[in-house]
Design a protein around this nucleic acid. Structure first.
Lengths: 231, 231
DNA sequence: TTACAATTTGTTGCATGCAAGAAATGCTAG
DNA sequence: CTAGCATTTCTTGCATGCAACAAATTGTAA
């Protein structure tokens, strides 16, 4: 399994109550499944608060795309369509490409060091065959890169996207295809090189190719999962 | 002046109550100014509803980045910093670039026709020296292009961004620099050509350069405005 | 059995009262 | 006149009651 699931980031421009966090976690970790009803009164009892704060949290989750509020019927856990998943990966590519370019332009040294260390640790994980650790490190690589772009607005949009995408841990279960591991590892190194050379265009290009490649695997995994457990 | 200000789009995945729309309009049209207090009780009286729906709308606007809710103090109209404006234009570039690429890849004929007609009408506006109409048509050009990408998720993120950017009509007051009008017009034509040739890479590249160019003007305008009326 | 209508149940939407806290105001002492 | 403290005022945060509506259930007639 996996302990930290929703997108943890320092971007807390909008009030992030503990309640909201707990509810979001329940969704992205699969404690509640798509189609499940999230009734305000029931949740209010569970969390020992009144309906009001529950209600506000659910509205927020609706905006994040994780639930659907049907007026006077109920609030339900939402399952993204195959098409939406595809659209989100396109956005991921654009966001991370932008981030790589910005990072290269900035020439941010500390973040670069962090990325290098990440690749080193990832290499070890590959050699040890520790897929779980590797998956976590990959996530960290991408997070570090986006954070390094040093754009609050970009981070906000990225977090929003990744929370929707984190649904069912699609992202983390993806790299298992044979051969893809070392490929991904090499691509990470290439991205670092481009950023080091302060070459924004190349950095963006490689990043986007990299994201596109892993997205393809991820989308396939999501499709398979969908066929096994149709909503 | 200008009648329609906030980003009108068919993307209504999230409940868009009339109240929310009206409040948002008040902000982006400048009826209420940055720093102004939006007190729940006062608004409730104005709109003749209770505090609850007002409160929910304000929370939504906080998520959209238009207001800031300070707990137990008040809800205030927010003014984006110069830096945030810059960050948002970067995102705009990425979004519209992505859209141009997707549109070229799709080869969507009806949208293409719409864009061509837009350019024709814009050309007339330029010749007539009707800056107001031209500004509106430019906005329509970009909206049509993004909508034509046929990505719900992209539209959601784009709308979110543009609502924040619509603040003080930064976008519309921008193209007035001498010479920039015909330039912009030419760039629009070039974008259409690239899309027509189903050349996604070129389409994206030109689109991004175009957005970057107009963003520079817009950012300058925002800066000037900021110096004249500091928050 | 089936079709259909009445009723019951369950859910969100809204109104409102009260509590908690922040900030402004006034008051008092020096 | 000024500094500091008490008080008052204004705001949001939360709890809760009720209304509106959708959907499920039940009963009934054919």
């Amino acid at each position: 399994m996996q302990e930290s699931s929703s997108v943890e980031s320092k971007t807390k421009s909008v009030a992030e109550t503990p309640l909201l966090t707990r509810l979001r976690q329940m969704i992205v970790t699969g404690v509640v499944q798509p189609g499940d009803l999230l009734a305000e009164t029931a949740l209010a009892q569970d969390f020992e608060v009144s309906r009001t704060p529950i209600r506000e949290a659910l509205k927020q989750l609706e905006r994040e795309g994780l639930v659907e509020v049907r007026s006077r019927v109920g609030t339900f856990v939402r399952k993204p369509t195959q098409r939406e998943i595809h659209e989100m990966f396109s956005l991921k590519e654009a966001f991370e490409g932008l981030a790589a370019g910005l990072l290269a332009r900035r020439g941010a040294v500390p973040e670069l060091e962090q990325l290098k260390e990440n690749v080193a640790r990832s290499q070890q994980a590959v050699e040890n065959g520790d897929a779980e650790l590797y998956s976590q490190l990959v996530h960290e690589f991408h997070s570090t890169l986006v954070a390094g772009a040093d754009s609050r607005k970009l981070s906000e949009h990225y977090d929003l996207l990744m929370n929707q995408l984190a649904y069912h841990r699609i992202v983390s279960q993806t790299l298992s295809l044979p051969g893809r591991l070392q490929n991904s590892q090499n691509e990470h190194q290439a991205i670092i090189d481009a950023i080091s050379s302060k070459d924004p265009l190349t950095a963006e290009l490689i990043m986007r190719r990299h994201v596109a490649a892993s997205s393809q695997s991820a989308a396939l995994a999501a499709l398979r999962e969908d066929e096994e457990h149709p909503g």
